[in-house]
Design a protein around this nucleic acid. Structure first.
Lengths: 141, 141
DNA sequence: CTGCTTAGTTATACTTCGCAACTGTGCGTG
DNA sequence: CACGCACAGTTGCGAAGTATAACTAAGCAG
């Protein structure tokens, strides 16, 4: 079977793809899409950000992000405002409604996962905590 | 703010989302989309599968999978054939061209990741190997 | 003012997905 | 056998997300 040193890259890639697909399928109806929720969470955590900052965080083009922000503005979740210091920039900020949705979405997003994690041993959770840090380091490298 | 032991679920979810987005941006072969490549790889690994089997593996509806298979058929990467044992079923199988694309995609898909993993310590790789198994277990639970 | 750069928007196209309506096949029951 | 139900797929429609490319607008030299 799976010797862990055999092909860790393929193994990790497939495990990540698998659980990511599970995340998507656990997402409740009516909820905003993945990209939109990601923007709301980023704004809730960091305050107002420019379009370019948002697009860099999500690793998408500014064109794509502009459309995602359009959907959020239409839904009343965020506001656009010109940066007073640089008229080319737009500062995007959550509305109160958007901040609330961000908090709910974030809680719901991980509720299924937290239930699974609660079934693991402390040692297993520690392994996953270490792995999370490693994965994030790799992703941001 | 960022106590990993406090909210492991959110931490793991965000790490997975982040590296998954990195996977997407590292993939160069723009020819086929993610879902289509996933189907080719599944078929290359398992031989012919029915539409329902494919849709369950990818956790999508049969309608979505049917369209993905349509695109692959149009591109000449897979063939459809009725199951002789059950006329309702379709057996989907890679063409030689599809098998080749699957092998290339599979290798390319993890080449970036393997390069990163090579920079880690053996202990870190062991942590990720354990975590992969745990993540897969959670995803399939 | 002219020209270049940066920030963002809009238009178009493509992939993926779910939902719903539909066809066609298999199978059991009266 | 005929009818009806269950199962396997297909198709059409709409939504989200993405990239590319062409465009506007603002800042910044010179």
């Amino acid at each position: 079977m799976r010797d862990t040193s055999h092909d860790l890259g393929a193994d990790l890639q497939s495990a990540v793809a698998r659980i990511y697909s599970r995340f998507r399928s656990e997402r409740s109806e009516g909820e905003l899409g993945d990209a939109a929720v990601g923007v709301l969470i980023a704004l809730a955590k960091n305050g107002a950000l420019t379009l370019t900052e948002l697009s860099e965080r999500a690793r998408v083009t500014t064109g794509s992000m502009s459309q995602t922000v359009n959907r959020l503005v239409t839904g009343g979740y965020v506001d656009r405002a010109r940066d007073p210091a640089d008229g080319r920039r737009m500062l995007i900020e959550t509305t109160p409604a958007g901040a609330e949705v961000a908090a709910e979405a974030r809680a719901h997003r991980v509720s299924w996962l937290n239930a699974r994690l609660a079934e693991l041993t402390p040692a297993e959770r520690a392994t996953l905590a270490e792995a999370s840090a490693l994965i994030r380091r790799i992703a941001d490298s």
